[in-house]
Amino acid sequence: MATTESATSDPEIETTLFITVSGPPGCGATTLCERLADAIGCPYVSGGDIFRELAEDREMSLNQLTAKADESDGIDRALDQRLQQIAEKWGMANKPFILESRLAGWLAGDRADLRIWLDAPEDVRLERIEDRMETEAEMRVREVSEAGRYQSYYDIDIDDREFYDLNINTARWGKEGVFELVRTAIEEYEPAIDEGAFRTPNVDL
């Protein structure tokens, strides 16, 4: 499984929060998760890495696996069920953890303590993925395809972001600036004065 375990022995951030990070390709989610995991000293799981592992196992490109997923709901449901199981496990652990995927906030639901959505203008995101194996065309195909499947399988509108606690345009700050915004949200969080998060709609897998 695609799990990253931080080796930090003296964490910068003291917390027990279960954090989800979501956003489209090139939004900066991986960069933030790696930085957060190191600062908190906690593991994180990336849905994107799991999807890439599925592609490698099948000797397929991301675009090919996306096309295969369009033909049947089996690949998506297996991936999402695994992510939901991980969310259930860590939601009861009272230990810090980071779950990153497009649907992480939905799949974790009310188990998550802090739900983050990252985004950036399309031209910025395209520039960020220039050095990846995924092409511009593949990125656009994947975004449209995934959105359609989420709506079809789970009645999820990926553009519904009401329940996210933080919505950050990562084009407005540098990598460290985005990290500092999230750090502040984590460190300033006080359960005693928390009047309640927006409820996440249930996802029936």
Rank of each mutant, 00 (worst) to 15 (best):
D194W: 01
A7I: 04
A29E: 06
A197Y: 06
D38H: 14
R199S: 14
W173I: 01
I50S: 10
A78Y: 08
D194M: 01
W106S: 09
E14Q: 14
E162Q: 08
E34T: 05
S6C: 09
D123L: 00
E71V: 01
V124P: 02
K68W: 06
D57E: 08
N167K: 10
C33S: 14
E188K: 03
M60F: 10
N169I: 06
I158E: 05
E146S: 06
K95L: 13
S9T: 01
K68P: 02
E127L: 14
T135L: 08
E5Q: 13
T15Q: 13
E176H: 13
E136M: 00
G41T: 04
E127M: 14
R82Y: 15
V141C: 08
T66C: 02
Q151H: 10
T200P: 11
T30D: 05
I13Q: 15
V203T: 13
L62S: 01
D194S: 02
E143M: 13
A67W: 00
D38K: 15
Y44Q: 08
P121R: 06
E100G: 08
L17P: 11
A197C: 03
A120W: 00
R52M: 11
F163P: 07
N169G: 02
L79S: 12
S72M: 09
P191G: 09
N63P: 01
P191R: 04
A197L: 04
W117F: 05
A112T: 12
T8D: 03
I116E: 07
G47D: 04
K89Y: 12
R115A: 07
E5M: 06
K68Q: 08
P24I: 04
C33F: 05
L166F: 00
L114A: 08
A112E: 15
I40R: 04
G174L: 00
M139S: 15
N94K: 11
I116L: 05
G28K: 10
I40S: 03
A147E: 11
A78L: 12
R132L: 08
D76V: 04
A120I: 01
